[in-house]
Amino acid sequence: MTVTVLPEVAGTSRATLRRNFWRGVWRVLRRKPSRMAGVGIVALFALMGAFGPLLYPANLPRDDNALYAPPSLAHPFGTDFEGTDVLALVVTGARYVLLTGLATAFITVALGTAIGLFAGFRRGRWDTALMRLTDLNLAIPGLPLLLVLSTVWKFTSPLEMGLVLGLLGWGGVARAVRSQTLSLRERGFIEAARGLGLPTRHIVGRELLPSMAPYIAMNMLIAVTGAVYAQVGLFFLGVLPFEANNWGVMLNLAVFSGGALTTPAALPYLLAPLLAILLLTLGIVLIVDAMDEIFNPRLREE
């Protein structure tokens, strides 16, 4: 059951360190099957985003004889208002959703980390000013602002959407990274580095960032879920033009044109994208839980 850890040979190389790390990951994952499920779910969605659109022809086939068809073997989630297979819509729509999520997460984390590190490391006047800005970023009502912004800028491409959502959402990460920096910079190893006269670039890049990396990675995953919700929600509200198929467009069409909330016939069309969102959330929540334990040894239930 338990993996026996080999006694470490003198002069441990980086490779064995890495192997031990992956062994630890494997152990944490195996202890709770739900975590394995989380990894499986997220891998499935990643594959869907990467290869999903290749599985289907560019224009999804329509079947005029089967509008809002009930679930069957050929159409596991039924068909939509044009007779297109709902499962195919979910699979091909995943790429847009995930790409936007990744773009947003990247911008959120890059901005948040940079601002948090700078504020926490410099302290003083810069810190005060940046934290005021962060407070404003956190307090501003994001969704109303997005809606109002959509009147002047149709930010539909994944990169534009990522940019908008990232610029609105970095506050939480910045605040957290700043407080981490403030506590880390008083620790012995940072003081030692400073005492040795190492350049700031080295201290921040080689000492501070690596010790925060797991934390930042977790925030990145959480930012992906946030971005998925926000963009699906924006398309659901119908304030952005529908250029590509994605889950939010499906929700909008199901509810406001398909009448999915009044007739059970269109219900599978509504439930399929909802199910996809729920599964993706579940997968990410489970992985974050596992990461928490991998990187935070105090939580390990040995």
Binding site: T225, V232, G233, I277, L278, I284, V285
Partner: peptide, 9 residues
Amino acid sequence: GIPVYVIGL
């Protein structure tokens, strides 16, 4: 973790 609109729908 679930967005409001998913709960509502």
